[in-house]
Amino acid sequence: MTDKPIVLFVCVHNAGRSQMAAGFARTLSGGAVEVRSGGSEPGASINPIAVEAMREIGIDISAEVPQLMTTEQVRDSDVVITMGCGDACPIFPGKRYEDWELQDPAGRPLDEVRPIRDDIRARVEHLLAELLPVTA
């Protein structure tokens, strides 16, 4: 295990929202948070429009691959952020859970994915501010 907080981002296909959130968390935390992501029904590949939206702001998620969320990932995480995976996510007492209601970027053009990306960034920034101590 690690001394860093472990955050798991989950959406159905692990191809858009959770991958963007994980990309933000990795980048914005500077490695201070261990980041994981998964899906209840992982897609075959990451959403190319999500990749492009993140590339526009300097975050490369193109090498990420949708993964199946496991019970072990949930159990081992300090914070579990779900994004529309419904009842597919196992619940463990004592964990911090949040459900972020976000539009699914699947099948949407880039101009509709940008606001979703920006919403995710704001939520990740807020989460990191709560998780990480402020250093002077």
Rank of each mutant, 00 (worst) to 15 (best):
M1A: 12
T2E: 07
T2F: 04
F9Y: 10
F9S: 05
V10Y: 08
V10K: 04
V10W: 13
H13E: 12
N14D: 07
N14F: 13
A15Y: 12
G16N: 09
S18A: 05
S18E: 08
S18Y: 14
Q19W: 05
M20L: 04
M20P: 13
M20I: 10
A21F: 04
G23P: 01
G23L: 01
A25G: 08
A25D: 05
T27F: 00
S29K: 04
S29T: 06
G31S: 09
A32W: 03
A32N: 12
A32V: 08
E34T: 14
V35H: 12
V35A: 11
S37I: 02
S37W: 00
S37G: 12
G38Y: 05
G39T: 03
S45V: 02
I46W: 05
N47F: 03
P48A: 00
I49C: 10
A50S: 14
V51M: 10
V51Q: 13
V51E: 07
E52I: 06
E52V: 06
E52G: 05
E52Y: 11
D60F: 02
A63K: 09
V65N: 08
P66A: 14
Q67F: 06
Q67S: 14
L68V: 03
L68P: 01
M69K: 04
Q73I: 01
Q73P: 15
R75F: 15
V80K: 03
I81E: 02
T82W: 05
G84K: 00
G86K: 00
A88G: 05
P90G: 03
F92M: 12
P93G: 13
K95N: 11
R96T: 13
W100G: 05
W100D: 13
D104M: 08
P105T: 02
A106Y: 12
G107D: 04
G107H: 06
R108P: 14
D111V: 06
V113D: 01
P115A: 10
P115M: 07
D118A: 12
D118R: 12
D118N: 09
I120Q: 09
I120K: 01
A122G: 07
V124H: 04
E125M: 10
H126N: 13
H126A: 13
L127K: 02
L128Y: 15
E130D: 10
L131P: 10
L132W: 00
L132V: 01
V134M: 08
T135G: 09
T135P: 01
A136R: 06
